[in-house]
Design a protein around this nucleic acid. Structure first.
Lengths: 191, 191
DNA sequence: CACCATCCGGACTACCGGTCCGCTTCATGC
DNA sequence: GCATGAAGCGGACCGGTAGTCCGGATGGTG
């Protein structure tokens, strides 16, 4: 049923080429510098290839993001505490925000571009849903009186590329994460 | 110095026509249905006119948003409490979120379109800066231990068109605002 | 009523995301 | 090795977009 024929060798090669071309364009120019024409050209590949592989612009950026965050997702599900299961809720929340913040701070332009491309259906992105579910669970354990579903969305809304850039001075690369953690702590604190 | 020659009559007429055309397209179709070609055509005006008046797509949407929120801005600066000055900080904060939430709930598609168009320099939008300053002041009064500047950005980040649509069931049009207020209250609460 | 700054219109450019289809390349069975 | 069908490929092509530009029309003013 879910049986998939293995990916052909050239297809795999091209997929990697496209991803790394997109990555390069992203770090060189701004997020809107990554047009699919350019990605295809830099990857030495036809435009159609990019689309067959990733569906559309949003899919491509989503794949990049997914690549960057797979490790964290595994650590949350099966890793040791405090990231993985077992630690008390507040510790686990702060550890999660620390890790997600690190990813976000290192990929602010990717985040902007992804947000821009996803536009409406950002909330169907499997990565997003995963973070949201995790946050929602933690908040609903710690603060059952709040609308945990909303709070999870709101906290994730702060992980916006432009905001991160705006909140990250060159001499303090982790200010964003600290502020997010501080806010989350305030949200956890009972009245 | 800051002396401005009065706007010519045809210019004023066209400006209103363009704004109301944009408004109409926005409510009819989705946010990306509002192309500047279409706006110009519906307004019975040349494309150049739209651009001279509003600079670019972002400027047009900004102007619409500004129109929608001018009243609230006045009420905050000179109106009676709890919106205006004089009320205790928590009451003033909740009143502000109530009013801003109402505007946001009624203009979710405009908000999406504006966010999309502004992309990077959303934080230079005078409207945004105004709300941010207000929130920042309130939070820094109530919670000097937090990073009020960041918290203000984070709260405003929740006012995202797609999120609002996602959080607004047909039978409960104010759920978003309630949840925002609840979260803000949690943020105010001392440990 | 004449004059000129201001404003107007819409053709034009450059580019974008996305589609399509004839051709190539890979994996597989012999 | 080699034939063969399926999977993958490339890039011309399409409809649409934001933004520019300038010859000509239109307003206010003295």
């Amino acid at each position: 049923m879910t049986e998939q024929r293995a990916e052909r060798a050239d297809a795999a090669r091209n997929r990697r080429a496209v991803l790394s071309a997109a990555e390069q364009l992203l770090t060189e120019g701004g997020g809107d510098h990554v047009s699919l024409d350019r990605v295809a050209a830099l990857a030495g590949v036809g435009k159609g290839t990019v689309f067959r592989r990733f569906g559309n612009r949003a899919g491509l950026l989503q794949a990049l993001l997914e690549e960057r965050s797979r490790e964290l997702r595994d650590a949350i599900e099966n890793g040791p505490p405090p990231l993985g299961p077992g630690a008390p809720t507040p510790e686990r929340l702060l550890a999660f925000l620390d890790a997600l913040g690190a990813i976000a701070e290192g990929n602010a332009t990717l985040l902007s571009a992804h947000g821009q491309a996803c536009a409406e259906d950002k909330y169907r992105d499997p990565s997003y849903q995963h973070w949201h579910r995790h946050l929602g669970t933690l908040f609903s354990e710690a603060r059952p009186d709040l609308d945990a579903d909303f709070v999870a969305h709101a906290v994730l809304a702060a992980f916006d590329g432009a905001l991160i850039r705006h909140m990250t001075p060159p001499d303090d690369p982790r200010r964003f994460t600290r502020s997010v953690q501080q806010m989350a702590t305030a949200l956890l604190g009972r009245d």
